[in-house]
Every structure is written in C-alpha cells, then in structure tokens.
Computed example of a mutant assay.
Amino acid sequence: MSRNTPYQPVLLRLLHNAIALLVFAALITGFMVYDRYDKRFGTLNLPIIRDTQGIHGTIALIFLIGLPIFALYCFHIGSRRLVQPPLSHFQEVGKPIWWVAIQRLVNTTILLSGTLAVITGRMMDEEWLPNQDFNHAGYIGHLISWVLMILSIAMHLLMSAKVGGMPLLLSIYSWRIRAEDTPIHWFKSFKIKPSSPILLMMEVLVIGGIAIAFILPAFYSK
C-alpha cells in the first residue's frame, strides 16, 4: 500500500477533530466522575474538582449537538470510510482489502458507540452517583458505551496505522488546503441516499438514536 501522505477534505478534518476533542474531553471528565463516586472497577484517586458532573454534562451536550452533523457527513459524503458491501471482503483474511474492511467496520462502530453513549447519558439522573446508586440501566449502559468507545478508538488508530501508516494518521491534522476544497465545494459530493442498504440501516440506527437522545429527558422517568 502506498505510504504517500493522503489528502483529507477540509470539512472532514474540521468535523473529525472537533468530535475527537469532545470525545476525549468527555472520556476524561467522565472518568473523573466515576473516580470520585464509583471506583468499583479500580481508581486513580484523582483530586476532586468541583462540579465535575456539570462539566462532563456540558461537554456531553455539545457532543450530542455535534454528533448528528458528523454522522450526516459520514453517511452522505464520507461513506467510503464506513462499512461497505460486499461483506465477502471480511473472508479475505490478511489481504489489504481485509484490513480496509476492518478499518471501515471500526469507523462505523465508533458512530454506534457514540450514539449509545448519548442515549444512556440522557437517561441518567445527576443524583444517582452522589447517592451511591449505581445499579440503574442508564448508568451501566453508559459505562459499557464508553468502554466500547475506548476500544473502538484504539482499533481505529491501529487499523489506520496498518492501512496507511503514519502518513494517514497525520493527514487528518494537516493544514494543507486545495483550491477546490473550499466551503462552496464542500457539499458537491453529498448523496441524498446512503450508498448501500447496510449504510441505510446504520444511518437509521445512528440518526434515530441521536433523535431519541434529544427527546429522551422529556419522557424518561428518572
């Protein structure tokens, strides 16, 4: 596989890096909340910061607002980076196309993990953890979603390194801009319909899940 530095569209870089920053901020502040109140699965005994839950909740809300924008980009402009038919590529173990297929599957899993995180996060009550009430489905699901997110991110980095090496990993942070990659051209490749039934199903799960997360507090009995 070529190790030449690939070019990533500016819109992808902006959305990817914004979402990545929010994810890492949410993971860090979320662990700080866990480390303060729960500690059942290990602890770092971090210093207590006032209103950690509020900080985490604010970051999570911004993530919830940004996630559908990123998801729509992924499904309608950057769909070639998500899981693609034919699924027979997964049988070609060890071949370059197999690694690419795994990378696309991992990218899709990140979107699903993020969706699960916002749904379960919106199910939570801020009084649960201070009251040592850890057995709610929303909290347990939230922990599971962030474990899945951490694993997905780790696999995303590993698969990207395998497929494109360091040039691919660094390309998302490049400052290069091509003349044709300006805002007026960003949506020229937008597709109304996802490129495959698989992606349509994934989009229904992700966008539908995000929509549920937005309205869930109005209906969920805490």
Rank of each mutant, 00 (worst) to 15 (best):
N45S: 14
I97G: 09
F219C: 09
I144P: 05
G164F: 01
H56I: 09
N17E: 11
S195G: 11
L12T: 12
L200W: 07
A154G: 15
Q53R: 10
Q103Y: 10
I207T: 03
P183E: 06
A101I: 06
K222E: 05
Q103W: 05
N135A: 15
I69E: 07
M166A: 12
L12N: 09
G78F: 06
W146S: 08
S2V: 11
I212D: 08
F41L: 15
I97S: 10
L148N: 02
M123Y: 04
R81G: 11
F63R: 01
L200I: 04
L82T: 07
I207F: 15
R36E: 10
M32P: 00
V163E: 05
P217L: 04
L27G: 14
L151W: 04
F134H: 02
I65W: 07
I198Y: 07
Q8D: 10
T43R: 04
T182K: 10
W128Q: 15
G209K: 00
V33D: 01
F41V: 08
L216F: 06
H136M: 12
A211I: 09
I177C: 05
G121T: 01
P96A: 11
S171Q: 08
V106K: 04
P47V: 11
A20R: 00
W99Q: 15
I140S: 06
H89P: 00
I49Q: 06
G54P: 06
I184Y: 07
G57I: 08
I215W: 10
L105V: 05
D35R: 10
L67A: 06
S79W: 05
